[in-house]
Design a protein around this nucleic acid. Structure first.
Lengths: 255, 255
DNA sequence: TTCATTTTGTGCGATATACGAACAAATGTC
DNA sequence: GACATTTGTTCGTATATCGCACAAAATGAA
């Protein structure tokens, strides 16, 4: 196991249980034991024990056939959100930013190949999907993802792209790794990223990195707008000053 | 449960690990092994194994002394939010409601003695605390909490109140169980609850239950407003029609 | 520095869990 | 109904985990 951790310092029953929780999702709101077993690759008997444990603890409901998660599992994510000062620090600035821009504003961090929303101030709904803290988008085709990838050493960014399924969500989605790497260089040089309907037709966005006093990138900020309302080419002109302002205001406050 | 489940159907290593995750929080953003052991009441060796497991899986970072949670733990809460259709169904209606009212609108469900926010459309910030999906408030002094408690059989509501720490957040907070039970009866009869600065000075709110086609209460909706802007006595007059409208529109859509 | 105190790491016996397989029950198909 | 298939449950045993006791390391006070 990577570093010097001994075998006996790993609780596999815990790891298996977490895997079972993650097996639930949009397409799998309720799972039978056999389904959860297939999704996780774990033995049916093991999955059954994990699910019954979740049920016993109140993290899941069981109707004798299907298991569903209960709101209690939100405690787990909340343990992160409340333990990490960043979301609470950023939120009021997002609110202001969103109001001034008249568009939705969000903040996110990188987790593997995805960006994870940690705070959000939404105006009108523009996306078909519903974003909230904890929501995830693939990094390669999201403005905040580009900014966060650009902040990494290029080898690391390449490594992440290599294990991403680069699919064309729209005809405009960039899926060629070399083209993406080139784009990351541009983002690094210019200090912002613009996405023009690469994730969803009709939606464009602009993002900047959020840095701490030492210049380390700790998150990304963005503004998303309907393409019908603001052309992608106008995004920088219209919103970059506001984003830079917020970026500067937050810089001394984080970490 | 407690019923027919056999001892061997419970994975205590998993249960202990979940307890460790929940030990993190606002006051405890970073935990040493000894601190986590104290907070959870688990043996140090056990906590250490759980924390190293979390670290190995990428749910936690370890600097050799302190553990902190990573954004990956949001996957767990997200498993609930994306697996449960309610938040996604409710969100667009909250957006509309919030816009029409010019105030923040939220939806929540009950988890133990607390309400858990599952969706939210926020206008200007009025509370000192930052609410987002996954956030929790004590049920007894929140408008949505009153509505959700009122939907339970009275013995159950009493039981929940009995294990709640009924503290006076403000001079206006109702803390007498009998007075609260009486208020729940009123809420049940009238179909809405109003809170006048019981949680925080300067904040009042009004909530209604969200019912499915069979009349079962599945969540609560509310509108929160600054007391300086809207007196509590005006809440029903100004916002109840909007809330009722949303309630009616959602009724055939949930479950 | 020394000594006391707290915290962390580890070996070990007792105990709990996972695995695979076998069985039972449910479901679907003809 | 008979059969095949899937799913849930139980069981024995090999293996992993727990909690304790002790050792080592870090921390702090005098």
């Amino acid at each position: 196991m990577g570093d010097g951790m001994r075998e006996t310092d790993f609780v596999s029953g815990f790891a298996r249980g977490l895997k079972v929780i993650e097996a639930f999702g949009e397409a799998q709101p309720r799972l039978s034991i056999a389904e959860a077993s297939k999704l996780t690759g774990l033995d049916r008997a093991t999955v059954r024990r994990s699910l019954l444990t979740l049920s016993e603890l109140g993290y899941a409901d069981y109707d004798g056939k299907f298991f569903t998660l209960t709101p209690k599992v939100l405690r787990l994510g909340h343990a992160y959100l409340s333990a990490t000062p960043l979301p609470a620090i950023v939120q009021p600035y997002l609110d202001q930013l969103s109001e001034k821009a008249g568009q939705s504003a969000s903040a996110s961090v990188l987790d593997g190949t995805e960006v994870v929303y940690i705070a959000r101030a939404s105006q009108r709904r523009v996306m078909s999907i519903n974003l909230m803290p904890g929501s995830r988008l693939p990094a390669y085709c999201a403005s905040m993802g580009r900014v966060l990838l650009a902040a990494l050493p290029e080898t690391e960014a390449r490594e992440i792209l290599s294990r991403t399924e680069l699919k064309a969500n729209t005809p405009r989605t960039k899926t060629d790794p070399e083209e993406l790497i080139e784009e990351l260089r541009r983002v690094r040089a210019e200090g912002y990223a613009v996405i023009d309907q690469e994730l969803e037709i009709g939606l464009c966005s602009i993002a900047v990195p959020l840095m701490n006093a030492r210049g380390q990138v700790v998150a990304a900020l963005n503004i998303g707008a309907p393409a019908a309302h603001v052309a992608a080419s106008e995004l920088a002109e219209r919103y970059l000053p506001l984003l830079r302002e917020t970026q500067a205001a937050l810089r001394p406050l984080v970490q």
